[in-house]
Each structure stands twice: as structure tokens, then as C-alpha cells.
Design a protein around this nucleic acid. Structure first.
Length: 825
RNA sequence: GCCGGAGUGGUGAAAUGGCAGACACGCCGGACUCAAAAUCCGGUGGGGGAAACUCCGUGUCGGUUCAAGUCCGACCUCCGGCACCA
């Protein structure tokens, strides 16, 4: 018998699959149902890591399973190819970013092939290719026309390390999401996409995404952060006009004892002047504005402007402060302060000795402004609130809002935490933003006929890390499309998240060069039926893609609201209690794993060790175990070498098999039970670990039978062949090899999935437990077709049960067919 | 602080409200071998018992139920997300 030699057989099958890509769209005909299965495409860093192995194995198991189930499966792969590491590599090693990127793609494609992943390589795409980003530039121009893309000067997140601006979503706890370097605030001109215009749609759409994990939906809900409230005008006393504030707590309006505005608020300077406190306010504002966000969050402080505003319902005059904790970026940048019912205002009021006035009383409580040690933020009943006294918070909120609105002093509004998406990157290796800056005409879009604006690739990267584009005269100098005068190209490039926001659409017609999409292909495949990737993109890529999908819908390119019907977010790969990372030095290189054990073992282990959404604990011993199982399968099957394995073709799911006396019937029913379990686990539950466990049980049962020297009969052949078929999605190489040696044609990956024969699952007798007062006291064996009364009678007649009961008659009995009998005395 | 998720053997983990711990790792024992490795077979939650058996056991405390790892309430711990969002 040949030994199991993964290196040799995997290479052979990979060659064969590359030569005759049998599985681009499955084995099915034109009429077969379509299934779009997608895994998040990788950044071409040059090497795949264990996270990729896990992600792409989940996808490949599903792809192979679905093909066998008769689907046409779209299962593409591509490259998220723009991005900063290419520039860093260029500076450090003197390789051009384009060359570096394309070489990495070559290397990683080899690695993916070595894993035996069944992608449709005809659809491969790289986002750094002009054939891809030309369409993105077209979309941008159309968004510009529609006002979805716009330019503004704004305070943005700046990452010194990356040398560029970052969107809000790309900042995690005041650090850059990539390198976790500190982010600072900077005022800069840039391009934005009006994602806030879609805030309601994006939020409400989450309710339709039943195939998404609740966790991700919640994260997006929180990120969008919709809150309903009232915008109220407080007339200024010392000068003209009024101060607009936003509040969700109109019910506390009578408790306002001061107002606060952000240091960046446009009124700050004017109020200070009118209040005669210019120098104090200016000093404070200058100091605060120089602080980083973290520093600013240290404690609450502020300065009196010398001005007052009038409470629109009570007519009371209250002072206006500039306060460090008021954010200019949310609401109106000004807040009415109710220290009795807001902890922040409470802290501030205590520090500056501002009155604290209770206007909402807790149930049966007697809150007292002077005695309080913390704000009472819950709802209650209004006190000291004029005509609204005695109302509940809930009623008062709506009635006060109505009252203000009727009086023209306020209006109901909705505020969002979500900010517009800043997509300008002061980087070289990205898609050029297709506009020019003309001294005469200002900012002018590039004419559609002149697209694409191709990113020059023969550039010298600058040692300091800055983009070479602004100084690349041959590229940057151009003609204004409007006045034909001299103009300069926009040298910012687009955020790479723009490319990944629509790549899944492009796969449907990746080689089309007359349009971004073929409408028929879009109709055929979209939405993505099943999307698999890491949870770290919950509010990055996954939110942007949902937004982009709706924008492209409104631009008339697609007919689709939500891009991803089902989402599976897989857990991290953990070793020694931490996520694998270079800095922790706990990285396992997939290549080493493949060299030592083969791709099938790598695949099997990553599916068996944990269910997909949980973190996967790396274990050398676990890998060993997976390898051992495969050699066990190898030996089991190779025992039949030289014989034609009897197996059931799709039209003949029953196998005569051996008579019951030697256990043949039992094995036959186990085979079908295993088919049922594996099909359900992969197809419905997506619990691949238990699917593998079920196959292991079947293998164990065959070994057991072999130990009894009853191995070479039809039922054992059938069981062995079924093991190969069920294991095929997980370990395609070894199963294909064994199938070819022992069965021959049709090839394993041309075969439809085995069918469950329901008659094989039928048992003649059932084992049932008998509980007395909740404790299992006996087991009985009853005919499968026994009535509940028969079962109960059998249970009561059982020796131990009868002894336990000792003549007492049951107070209550429950019979759960096929499970147990419960007797209460 | 708010919002999610998770706490089960020595370990990774199983379990439509119905006999907790499938499967695997590790460990122990046996077979094979001159021997070892590999392989095959068996055992393996804890306590008691020679055994048949029996008691206890899914983070803690309560509740619902004939029956709770699973449902409900309170709490503890860990992980993840957001965090002065008015």
C-alpha cells in the first residue's frame, strides 16, 4: 500500500484543476440556481496568513459543497491592491509600488492555489489596475454632479505615520486603525462623500439584514447613532441673534441654568467681545484648541463669555460658557445645560458654582439640587416647569417640542453621530481623484471621455514619505477641461475603502471594458448570497459597501439596496492567548504548515478546531490530530486497493448491503445519518466542526466493523465511498486521489452530493430513558411504532421502575416519543 | 458608563427545553515489536463502592417547568465595540 503523501497528490490535483477548471460555475446547467459566495479579498502583502487560511477555507468548503448540491456558484478572488504598504516598501527597498504589488499578487496567488481553493480565476481583479479604477472615477464624477461627492475644508483626523487624513471610521480610540499610531486633528481641504444623506436608509436597512450577526448590526446602529430631539433657539441678550442648541431632553428645558458652546463655535469670539471678556475667552479657546482629544477629555472646564441667553419657555436669563467638552462636530456645537439631569453639566456646574435646579422628580423621590451628588438622568415627573408641571418626561418631551415649534422657537430634528466620509488621501498609491484645479475656473471635473486618469507608475518615491504626485510636473500639469487654460491635477488619491466598496459588483463582469457592469450578470448573481470575513470591518468596509450600493442604485447602475444577504464573521486565529501578529512573535506561516502536513490538513484543522464565528486556538497537537485522521482515512480506503469500490450513484441511494446479523443494517443507517448531519451542518448551521466530527464517527464505525473482520462487503464499500464524498469539501486532494484510485469515474468533484435515504434512518426499536421525579432510573427498549400508552406501560412494568414506585401510582406522566418517559410520584 | 458576546472535563469543544461532556487532543492500560516509533483495541468529569450501582456536577444566587447548559430575574468574571454624541 502506498503511504499517504500529501505533497505529491496535492501538487498533482492542483495541476489538474488548473488545467481543466471543472468548477467555475459548478457542474450544473444553465437552469440551475445561482449562488454568489464571496470572501473578503486580501491586501496583497506578499504572504497569506492563518486568518486568510481560515477565511478562505470556510468559503471553499461552502463553494465545493454548494456545487455538489447542484448550484452554479460564483466564487471569485481578487486583490485590494492600493494602499500604503506598497509605498513604504518602495522607500525601504527601492521597488516601485506597482511592481511590488504585482509581484506580491503573483506570490499570493501561488499560495492560494497551494491551498486547493477553487476560485474562478477568470474573474480575478486588482483594484490598482486602470481597468478597474477607471469606473470608480466615473462613479466619482457622477457623485460630484449629484452632490454626493463634495469638497470642503474641515477638521479631520491626521495620521503622522501614514502621512494622510483618515475617515472617522478608520480611527480606533484616537489611533490609526492600521498601525495604531496616534491621530491628531488638522484642518484641511478634502473630498467627502455624503454618507449622512443615507443615514436613515442605512440604519433602517439593518432591520432587513436577517442573515447578519446581531453584533454587526448593533455596531452599525451605534455608529450611525440616530437621535431624535429638538433644535431650540435661545435669543442672545448682549447681541443680536440667537444660540441654536440641540437636545434630546426637551422635558428638562425649565432646568437650564447655563449654556455651553464648543471652543470652535463661530459665536465664541463675538460673544466674548460683546461680553467684554475677549482676553479670557481667547486664552481659553487657544489653549483648548491646541490640545489633543485625549488631553481634552481629562476634565471639564470652561470660561464665561460675559454673555447671556434667554430661556425660550421661562424667559429666564442664563450665562453662556465656552466649555472644553462640547463637540463642534455634533449637533450645533452648543448645548443647553441642565446640571440636575445631565452628569456632564452637573460636574461643570459644581466646579463653577452654577445653580442646579431639579425639574424632573423620580418616582416617590425628593431630589434636591443642592444636596445631589450626581445628576438624575432618568425619566420622571416634571416639577417647577410652568404649565408642564406634573407631566411625565415622555409626555413633556413631545408637548414642549410642539409648543416650541408652534411658537417658532424650535423644531424637531434628528441628529446622527455618523459623519460624512472623507475620502481624500495625501498618498501616491491610490486611485486618482478625477478633477483639476484651474486658476480661472476653480475645481473642474475631468471630462468623462478623458477617463481614466491614470496613476503614473514611473515615479521616484520621496524619502520623507510624502506623495511624489504634487511635484511630478509632467503629470500634474494639464489643461482645464472647461477653459482650456493651464490647470493642475488633483494630487490627492482616493481612500482604498472606495475600491473595496464595489469590487463584489465588478466580479460579475470583471473583463467587460465598455461598462462597469453587465446588467444581466448583475441580475443573475446579486446580491452576494453569502459573504465571509473578519468582524473588524463591521463599521468600515461593510458600512461603506452598503452606502456605495445605494449610491450606485441611485445613479442607475444597479437595482439593489443591500449588497450582502448573509454575513459570516469569523473569529480570529489565536496562539498563546493572543492574536497572531508579528509584534507578538506568535505567527504561524501557512507555507510551513503546508510543507509539513499538506493543504488538506491545514484546511481540516482550521474547520475542525472551532465553529467559524469563534476564535480559533492554534494548536500544534490539533494539527497533528487532523493529519492523523487523514492518514486514517487513507489507510481505510486503501485497504480496498485493487477492488472496485461499490458505491451508490445519485440515482441509486440504497445499497443492498449486508444482512442485519453482521451489523450491516446498522452501518447503513449510520451512513445515512451521517449524510443527514453533515448536510445540515454545512448547509444550514454552518458548523463545520461538528460536520467533521460526524465524518470521524463514521470512520470510527467502519474501523470497528473492520476489526470484526466484516470489512469487505458492499455496505462497507458504500460507507467508505460516502466518507470520501462527505469529506471532499474539507479535504479535496486526498479524497479526489482516493476516489480516482478506488472508484474511477465520474471524478469526485463532478459528482452530486449524496442523498439521504429516509428509509435507512427508520429504526425498529428505540432506546428510551425513564425518569422518576426528574432522575433517570432505567432504560427501556420499545418498538418504534409503539403508542405512547404502550411506551408508558412498558416503562411502568420495568423492574427497576416498578421497584422505585413500590406500588405508588404516578401523579403525572410525560412521554416524549423517542426520547424519554417522565414519571412524577 | 452604554451596547453586544461568552463562562461546560486536564485542553479545543458537543448538546431543536428531554439521558451533559459527541468528536478530537492529552493521559492511562492492552495488542503488535527483540525494542522503540507508528498503528490497532480499550479506559478516561469528580466523590463513594470489589461490583451492580449511587451521589454530586455546565460562573454565582434565585425563579419557571414533569424536565434547565439551554428560558426568566439579579449578580460576578472575561472578551469585543462605542465612549463627554447633549
Amino acid at each position: 500500500m502506498d503511504a499517504y503523501n500529501p505533497e505529491e497528490i496535492e501538487a498533482r490535483w492542483q495541476r489538474r484543476w488548473a488545467e481543466a477548471p471543472a468548477m467555475d460555475e459548478g457542474n450544473a446547467g444553465e437552469e440551475a440556481p445561482c449562488f454568489y459566495l464571496l470572501e473578503m479579498f486580501p491586501y496583497p502583502s506578499g504572504r497569506i496568513h492563518m486568518g486568510h487560511v481560515r477565511n478562505y477555507t470556510i468559503g471553499d468548503v461552502m463553494a465545493r459543497f454548494l456545487r455538489a448540491r447542484g448550484y452554479r456558484v460564483l466564487h471569485p478572488m481578487g486583490w485590494d491592491a492600493f494602499g500604503l504598504p506598497a509605498e513604504t516598501a518602495a522607500i525601504q527597498r527601492g521597488v516601485a509600488p506597482a511592481k511590488w504589488t504585482y509581484e506580491n499578487i503573483e506570490a499570493m496567488r501561488v499560495q492560494l492555489r497551494r491551498m486547493g481553493f477553487s476560485y474562478d480565476w477568470k474573474r480575478e481583479l486588482a483594484t490598482c489596475h486602470p481597468g478597474y479604477y477607471r469606473w470608480e472615477q466615473l462613479f466619482f464624477l457622477q457623485m460630484l454632479e449629484k452632490g454626493i461627492a463634495y469638497r470642503k475644508k474641515a477638521v479631520v483626523n491626521w495620521c503622522e505615520q501614514c502621512g494622510t487624513v483618515l475617515a472617522n471610521e478608520q480611527v480606533e480610540g484616537e489611533q490609526c486603525w492600521r498601525g495604531h499610531r496616534p491621530v491628531t486633528q488638522k484642518e484641511i481641504d478634502g473630498w467627502f462623500l455624503r454618507i449622512t444623506a443615507y443615514a436613515d436608509e442605512l440604519l433602517d436597512g439593518l432591520d432587513t439584514l436577517e442573515g447578519w450577526p446581531e453584533k454587526v448590526r448593533t455596531m452599525q446602529r451605534n455608529w450611525i447613532g440616530r437621535s431624535y430631539g429638538v433644535q431650540i433657539a435661545f435669543p442672545l441678550v448682549e447681541c443680536e441673534g440667537s444660540l441654536e442648541v440641540f437636545t434630546t431632553r426637551a422635558d428638562t428645558l425649565f432646568g437650564v441654568t447655563f449654556a455651553s458652546i464648543a471652543a470652535e463655535h463661530p459665536l465664541a469670539e463675538r460673544l466674548a467681545e460683546a461680553g467684554g471678556r475677549q482676553s479670557e475667552v481667547r486664552a481659553f479657546v487657544d489653549r483648548i484648541r491646541r490640545q489633543e482629544a485625549t488631553e481634552r477629555a481629562q476634565g471639564k472646564e470652561g470660561v464665561f463669555t460675559g454673555c447671556h441667553v434667554v430661556n425660550p419657555v421661562s424667559g429666564e436669563r442664563v450665562p453662556v460658557y465656552v466649555a472644553n467638552f462640547v463637540l463642534m462636530s455634533y449637533g450645533t456645537g452648543a448645548v443647553m445645560a441642565v446640571p440636575a439631569h445631565d452628569q456632564r453639566d452637573f460636574d461643570f456646574a459644581r466646579r463653577y458654582e452654577i445653580p442646579i435646579r431639579v425639574v424632573v422628580q423620580s418616582e416617590g423621590g425628593d431630589l434636591d439640587g443642592d444636596a445631589m451628588t450626581a445628576a438624575y438622568e432618568d425619566d420622571g415627573v416634571l416639577v417647577a416647569s410652568g404649565e408642564f408641571t406634573g407631566k411625565t418626561s415622555e409626555m413633556a418631551r413631545s408637548e414642549i417640542a410642539e409648543h416650541l415649534q408652534a411658537a417658532g422657537k424650535g423644531r424637531k430634528t434628528v441628529n446622527y453621530r455618523l459623519r460624512d466620509w472623507g475620502i481624500s488621501r495625501q498618498r501616491y498609491w491610490g486611485a486618482p481623484i478625477p478633477v483639476v484645479h484651474c486658476t480661472a475656473c476653480g475645481v473642474v471635473p475631468v471630462a468623462v471621455e478623458q477617463l481614466p486618469v491614470i496613476l503614473p507608475t514611473d515615479v521616484e518615491l520621496l524619502a520623507g514619505g510624502a506623495s511624489p504626485l504634487p511635484t511630478l510636473e509632467s503629470w500634474v500639469n494639464t489643461q482645464c477641461p472647461r477653459c482650456k487654460g493651464a490647470a493642475r491635477r488633483e494630487t490627492d488619491t482616493m481612500d482604498t475603502f472606495v475600491e473595496s466598496s464595489w469590487y463584489f459588483l465588478r466580479y460579475t463582469s470583471a473583463r467587460l471594458d465598455t461598462a462597469p457592469f453587465d446588467p444581466l450578470e448583475l441580475e443573475k448573481w446579486l446580491p452576494v448570497d453569502h459573504y465571509i470575513g473578519g468582524v473588524e470591518h463591521a463599521v468600515l468596509h461593510l458600512l461603506y459597501s452598503r452606502f456605495f450600493t445605494r449610491v450606485l442604485r441611485d445613479l442607475g447602475w444597479i437595482r439593489l439596496d443591500e449588497p450582502f444577504r448573509n454575513l459570516l464573521t469569523q473569529g480570529m486565529v489565536i496562539k498563546d492567548g493572543a492574536k497572531m501578529s508579528k509584534s507578538k512573535g506568535n505567527v504561524v506561516d501557512p507555507d510551513d504548515l503546508i510543507n509539513a502536513y499538506g493543504a488538506d490538513t491545514a484546511r481540516l484543522f482550521s474547520m475542525f478546531a472551532a465553529p467559524p464565528e469563534k476564535d480559533l486556538d492554534w494548536s500544534e497537537r490539533g494539527v497533528d490530530g487532523s493529519y492523523r485522521f487523514l492518514t486514517r482515512v487513507w489507510r481505510l480506503a486503501m485497504a480496498f486497493e485493487g477492488r472496485q469500490l461499490a458505491w451508490a450513484d445519485p440515482g441509486r441511494s440504497d445499497v443492498g448491503g449486508a444482512p442485519d446479523e453482521d451489523g450491516g443494517g446498522k452501518l447503513r443507517s449510520l451512513v445515512h445519518e451521517t449524510i443527514r448531519r453533515v448536510t445540515h451542518d454545512i448547509g444550514e448551521r454552518r458548523h463545520f466542526n461538528t460536520a467533521v466530527a460526524a465524518i470521524m464517527e463514521l470512520v470510527n464505525a467502519i474501523y470497528e466493523r473492520r476489526a470484526l473482520r466484516q470489512s469487505d462487503d458492499a455496505i462497507t464499500h458504500f460507507a467508505t465511498a460516502t466518507v470520501l464524498r462527505l469529506l471532499a469539501p474539507f479535504a479535496p486532494h486526498i479524497t479526489s486521489e482516493l476516489w480516482e484510485r478506488l472508484v474511477g469515474t465520474p471524478a469526485l468533484d463532478r459528482l452530486l452530493w449524496p442523498e439521504v435515504d429516509a428509509t435507512a434512518l427508520v429504526r425498529e426499536t428505540l432506546e428510551m430513558a425513564v425518569q422518576i421525579n426528574g432522575k433517570v432510573r432505567a432504560h427501556i427498549s420499545v418498538p418504534a411504532d409503539a403508542t405512547e400508552a404502550d411506551v408508558l406501560a412498558t416503562a411502568l412494568a420495568e423492574e427497576k421502575v416498578a421497584g422505585e414506585l413500590a406500588g405508588r401510582s404516578p401523579r403525572k406522566t410525560v412521554v416524549v416519543p423517542g426520547r424519554l418517559v417522565s414519571i412524577v410520584v
